[in-house]
């Protein structure tokens, strides 16, 4: 059964000012006003549900978070939405100075995903070299990772594209070594069981939060991201 209350929120009356009418700027049609009335049982109700409205609702509920660069002057090419797990990593508090340094480096890399005009991309799974993000196997599952390599141990943040240039980052795993402050196993070899589990975790997180929506699934890099660069 559809979530009626979620559908009603698209009327913009219950969304916070930062997420309601502004979110329809520059589209051919936008909601000028929304009015809900009690009209008695038996009247038809049109339920409009968009993934964008659903994500805004999850942000409202504290289940997802939008990453805002600390430097407000930063360019905004893309949007980063984060799970609680990723938000707690990049926003703190941190248990140690070492953890703070590593997590703030990760934050800078996620902010870079928002601001960079060009992002290097590994488009073919298993062919990753030094690219910043990569599409994981199998491609049609739409799971990607962002690579935060330096300093060791490297971190991999798993995400899916809710829309072109809108990525939802769900989980973070160490690449090759245990990290005391990360509750996830190292990924090791690219075909390891741990990699498969990490991809499955990302899928499960999506399913929990956005059960009625699918990520974008394109055949070209430009379907996913502006400024994606496959180096030749």
């Amino acid at each position: 059964m559809p979530d009626v209350s979620a559908g009603l929120t698209l009327g913009a009356v219950s969304l916070p000012s930062s997420l309601s009418l502004r979110s329809v700027r520059s589209v051919p049609f936008k909601a000028k006003s929304a009015k809900m009335t009690r009209a008695g049982i038996g009247n038809p109700l049109l339920i409009y549900k968009s993934m964008r409205a659903e994500i805004n609702r999850l942000i409202d509920d504290g289940k997802l978070f939008e990453l805002n660069p600390l430097n407000e002057k930063d360019n905004r090419v893309r949007t980063v939405i984060m799970s609680r797990e990723i938000n707690s990593l990049v926003s703190g508090p941190w248990a140690s100075a070492e953890m703070a340094a590593r997590c703030l480096r990760l934050r800078a890399e996620l902010e870079n995903f928002i601001s960079a005009e060009e992002i290097t991309v590994c488009w073919e799974p298993f062919e990753a070299d030094v690219e910043q993000i990569g599409r994981l196997d199998p491609p049609h599952w739409g799971v990607w990772d962002l690579r935060s390599r330096d300093p060791k141990p490297g971190l991999r943040v798993f995400f899916r594209f809710a829309d072109k240039d809108v990525a939802i980052f769900f989980t973070c795993s160490p690449r090759s070594l245990n990290v005391s402050w990360l509750d996830r196993l190292p990924l090791f070899d690219r075909k390891s069981r741990e990699w498969k589990l990490a991809i499955a975790d990302c899928l499960a997180e999506w399913k929990t939060l956005l059960p009625n929506h699918e990520p974008i699934n394109g055949s070209h890099l430009s379907d996913y991201i502006t400024g994606g660069t496959v180096l030749r």
Binding site: P2, V4, G7, L8, G11, A31, K32, S33, A34, K35, M36, T37, R38, A39, G40, I41, G42, N43, P44, L45, L46, I47, Y48
Partner: peptide
């Protein structure tokens, strides 16, 4: 979706 409900939503 068209549903039967106690509420209607009017969008301008």
């Amino acid at each position: 979706e068209t549903k039967t409900s106690a509420e209607t939503v009017k969008l301008s």
